[in-house]
Each structure stands twice: as C-alpha cells, then as structure tokens.
C-alpha cells in the first residue's frame, strides 16, 4: 500500500504514515519512558552486550506479537501460537544436530510453520469455522506433535549457531529490523495489499475483487512461520528443545498486540504498534525484575498495566468528546 502511494505523491505518503502514528504516540512515549527507566536502573544496557542481551529476551515476544497481529488485522485470532512456538523449538533441536545440519533445520522449521499455519487457515476460512475454536483445537494437535517429536526436554543446537544468534552479538536486534523490513515488503505485494481490506470490510473487499480468502489463509501461514521461528530462536537461546516451552506466548502475544493498538475486529492497527507493544511488555518485565519484584508480582502488575493501557485511550477519548 505504502509503496504505491509513494510513487504517486511523497507528501501524501508521509501524511498517511503520520496519521497512522498519531494514535501510537502515547504508546511510543510510554515505551521510551520505560526504556529510559531501564537504562537508568541498569546502565549496562547501554553497551553492545547489554543491548544484545535485551534484544535476545525481546525477539521471541516480538515475533509472536507480529504473528498474532497479522491474524488480528484480518479479523482472525490464534490460540495456537504457544504450541506452534514449542513445535518450532523441538523441530530445531532435533534436526539441527542431524544429517542436514543447521540449514536443513531452518528449512524444516520454516516449512512446518508455514504448512501448519496454512492448514489452520484453510480449516478456519474455507470451512467457515470460528478461528478461536479452530486454533484452540489446533493447539492440542500441535502441542501433541511437539510431544511426539520430543517427549521430554532434550535435543541439541550446534554451539556456533547458538553463539551466532544468542551470543554477545546484537544479531537479535538485526533480526527484528529485518523482519519489520520484510513486513513492509509484504504489504507491497498483492496479498499484503489485500490484508487490511480483508480485515476491515471482507464483503466490500470481496466485491471489489480482493482475494479475501487467500489473503487470510496467507496471514495464517505467515503467522505459523513467525511462531516456529520464535521457537527456533528460543531453542538456540537455551541450546535444546522443550515441548512445552511456548505455552506462555499465546496470551502474551495477544497482550502485546492489543497493547500495540491492534483491534480484534480486523483492519485496525499497525505492525509497528504490535512491535512496540511487545517491546513495552518485554521492558516492563525486565524493569520489574531489576526493581526486585518477585516474579509473582509481575503477573499482578502485568494485568493492571494491560487494563490501564487499553482503558486510558478510551477514557481520554470520552473526555475529549464531552468538552
């Protein structure tokens, strides 16, 4: 979408972008404030090693937030993200030390994510079953597959690959930017262009000749791919695979996407918002850790902050409407 406008009118492009950023200014400010607080509490953050470590704790959440956001933009949702992350982790841990090596492992992980995502999409879209319950059932099937592949934590990731992704290099940060860039490119393809239209007004889009079903199924496939890649990264981080490691990501991905202003009904929100939302969640967890909160209190704070972050724009909007 953006690239098409850009070729026509440069000023219009930036105005559209500015318009889309406007609702996110509050979020960006909060993220910046939390980052500043984190840097103040932990000055070590402002070094290559500090940034690397932080980016490594953030990357999986950023990936699953994007995986959830792309579905929510088309009006879908997935409760299978966590299970898919686990599946990606166990496939990486079992294939990478095998015959085909790291490259083969990456291909296997990506292919499984795409196929599983696309299957969920076909079932939900073509058979017209509600996405929430299809992905709920899928989460059992995918989680079962992960348990079949690796019944208990184990497997191995080659050491050099772990060092490359999760060592003292800012590789994770580079990956975030790379994925964000690829998302921009995807939005310029016909399927990417259809994404927002299919979410915002499926019937209208269909009548206008937009391939609504294809765009939605593609979104499911990409969502699966992003989830298994998050699993791959976690496996590289821990050096092994765990069939239940992804569980928490289902709800966290929804929370991050919603914090980022992505709506449930489709067509509302931006990917930069979702990424910022995941950053906020990630920084928040780190800050609370440094403030010495027990892990439990983090749940309490997380619940309150999510409600606050979602309710605040609603409340301010209402006060503005009623001068």
């Amino acid at each position: 979408m953006s690239s098409m406008i850009r070729t026509g009118d440069d000023r219009l492009y930036w105005r559209v972008q500015g318009e889309r950023n406007r609702g996110l200014m509050g979020l960006f400010a909060v993220v910046a404030a939390f980052l500043a607080l984190y840097a103040y509490l932990f000055p070590g953050l402002l070094s290559v090693a500090g940034v690397s470590k932080f980016a490594q704790s953030w990357l999986p959440l950023a990936l699953v937030a994007m995986a959830q956001a792309i579905l929510m933009l088309t009006g879908g949702i997935s409760l299978a993200i966590g299970a898919t992350v686990s599946l990606g982790a166990v496939i990486a841990a079992t294939t990478m030390s095998g015959y085909f090596g790291v490259a083969g492992g990456i291909v296997a992980v990506s292919a499984s994510g795409l196929v599983i995502g696309a299957l969920c999409g076909v079932i939900a879209i073509r058979l017209r079953l509600p996405a929430i319950i299809v992905t709920l059932a899928a989460s059992f099937i995918i989680g079962g597959l992960a348990l079949l592949i690796l019944p208990r934590p184990g497997g191995a990731i080659p050491g050099w690959f772990s060092d490359l992704l999760a060592g003292n290099t800012p590789a994770a940060l580079v990956l975030v930017f790379l994925v964000a860039l690829l998302w921009k490119l995807y939005l310029a393809t016909p399927l990417g262009l259809s994404l927002y239209a299919a979410g915002e007004n499926p019937v209208g889009a269909y009548r206008a000749g937009v391939p609504v079903d294809a765009a939605r199924i593609a979104a499911y496939a990409i969502s699966g791919l992003l989830s298994t890649l998050a699993g791959l990264f976690i496996a590289a981080q821990t050096g092994s695979g765990d069939p239940v490691i992804g569980q928490a990501f289902t709800l966290n991905s929804i929370a991050a996407a919603v914090l980022g202003g992505v709506g449930f009904l489709g067509g509302r929100g931006t990917m930069r918002g979702a990424i910022a939302g995941s950053l906020l969640l990630s920084v928040m967890i780190n800050v609370m850790f440094f403030l010495g909160f027990p892990p439990v209190a983090q749940y309490v704070a997380q619940g309150l902050i999510i409600i606050g972050a979602v309710a605040l724009p609603q409340l301010t909007a209402r006060f503005r409407r009623r001068p």
């Binding site: 919603v258 749940y299 704070a301 997380q302 309150l304 999510i306 979602v310 309710a311 609603q314």
Partner: peptide, 23 residues
C-alpha cells in the same frame, strides 16, 4: 464502562488473579 474488549479485560483479570493467588 471502560469499553475494554472482553477478551482483554478478562485475560488481564486472569493474569492479575493468578499473581494474587500465588502471593
């Protein structure tokens, strides 16, 4: 009243309760 989407409101409530319960 806060117009929070039910999924978010109840999800946040569940997260909150989980923390309180463990405490």
């Amino acid at each position: 009243y806060l117009r929070i989407h039910p999924m978010i409101m109840t999800l946040a409530m569940a997260t909150f309760l989980q923390g309180v319960l463990i405490l």
